[in-house]
Amino acid sequence: MDTLKNIILSTARQTIEIEAATLQDLRNSLDEGFVATVEAIYAATGRVILTGIGKSAIIAQKIVATLNSTGTPAIFLHAADAIHGDLGMIQVQDVVICLSKSGETPEIKVLVPLIKNLGTMLIGMVSNKDSYLAKQAQFILHTPIDREADPNNLAPTASTTAQMAMGDALATSLCALRGFSPKDFAQFHPGGSLGKQLYLRVSDLYTHNARPMVDPATGIKRTILEITSKRLGATAVVDTDEKVLGIVTDGDLRRMLERLDNWTDVCAQDIMSVHPKTIFAHAMAVHALEIMRKYSISQLLVVDEEEKYVGVVHLHDLIREGIV
């Protein structure tokens, strides 16, 4: 059993070590050629088309997704499909990035002359600089590979790791050149939790909740009913102008019961927490979460620009939207 455990751990650790070394070699290989390639893609007026065969095709699809999500329009074209009718999707103003570890794959050798005949810019992402693809491409994204990470040095492992990292480096470099902002990112990711952190505001949340509210002289029974009926675990205490004076929470009620034997004459102002945490309606929802986490609370009173009480945002609202 120990022998089996040792085989598993040593193999896994060796794999990670080989791939880590591959990434370090990739980092050290970045030079003026990489800069020129990024600048050429940035200056192009068309799309970035990524193509490949086998595992390289799978990596190409991931790079396409990353480019699209960071502001560079990209599409995937399988190398086998390209030579069987799909070549028509390539336009002269596009940029084609062809992924191949060896640069000698038969499908790639067929595809490369067809791309060049279209007058389209060809970039080779290749490990072998002396390969057919490298010699035919106008630009090279070199992904040096000493060996694959599997015990037989055969399965695409370290080479695909290098390709994926090169794709990320390309996408992030273009992202920086385009001045791609968090607002732009949110536009391309409106349905995910990352996007919601960047565009969802408190005003998108609190309007769906009730607005529990009492004045300072409201009796304890009526205060409890207000908290219970509005189902937010608290009520705001406001003045005649609806400015926040305090908050009464479930916790305040429990502490009152622990402290007092007779509470029939108690009113809201006797037990409220003064200077409660508030947030502006226009604030980002993620900021509301930061405040809740910092002070270990589950709701915030929401105020408008005139600091009038307008509602409550609850931790459950943030959970429901996937912010947490």
Rank of each mutant, 00 (worst) to 15 (best):
T37D: 04
D25L: 14
V48N: 00
A12P: 06
T37H: 02
G46M: 07
E39F: 12
I41H: 06
A43E: 14
L50K: 01
N28L: 10
T37I: 08
A21L: 08
V38L: 04
S29C: 13
Q24Y: 13
R13M: 14
V38Q: 02
R47F: 03
E39H: 10
D25I: 07
Y42I: 05
T45A: 15
R27D: 14
R13N: 15
R13E: 14
I16H: 13
N28R: 14
L30R: 13
I16T: 10
E39T: 08
T37S: 10
A43S: 11
D31M: 09
V48P: 03
V48Y: 01
N28Q: 12
R47M: 02
L50M: 09
I18F: 02
D25M: 10
L50D: 02
A44N: 04
T37C: 13
A21E: 06
N28P: 07
A40L: 07
E19Q: 13
F34E: 03
A44Y: 02
T22N: 06
V38A: 04
F34S: 02
D25S: 12
A43K: 14
I41T: 05
G46N: 04
T37W: 01
A43N: 13
I18V: 12
F34C: 09
T37Q: 04
E39K: 07
A21Y: 08
A20F: 08
A40Q: 09
A36Q: 14
T22F: 02
E32I: 10
R47H: 07
N28G: 12
I16E: 11
E39P: 03
L50Q: 01
V35K: 10
D25T: 11
R13D: 15
G33E: 11
E39Q: 14
Y42G: 02
I41D: 00
G46L: 04
S29F: 14
Q24C: 05
A20D: 08
V38T: 08
G46S: 05
A21F: 05
T22R: 05
V38C: 07
Y42D: 15
A36H: 11
V38F: 06
N28H: 13
A20K: 13
I41C: 03
L30S: 10
A43H: 15
T45C: 05
E17N: 07
A36E: 09
I16N: 11
R47E: 05
E39M: 10
E17I: 03
A20L: 06
I41P: 00
S29P: 11
G33K: 12
R27C: 14
I49A: 00
A12T: 12
I16W: 11
E19G: 00
A12K: 07
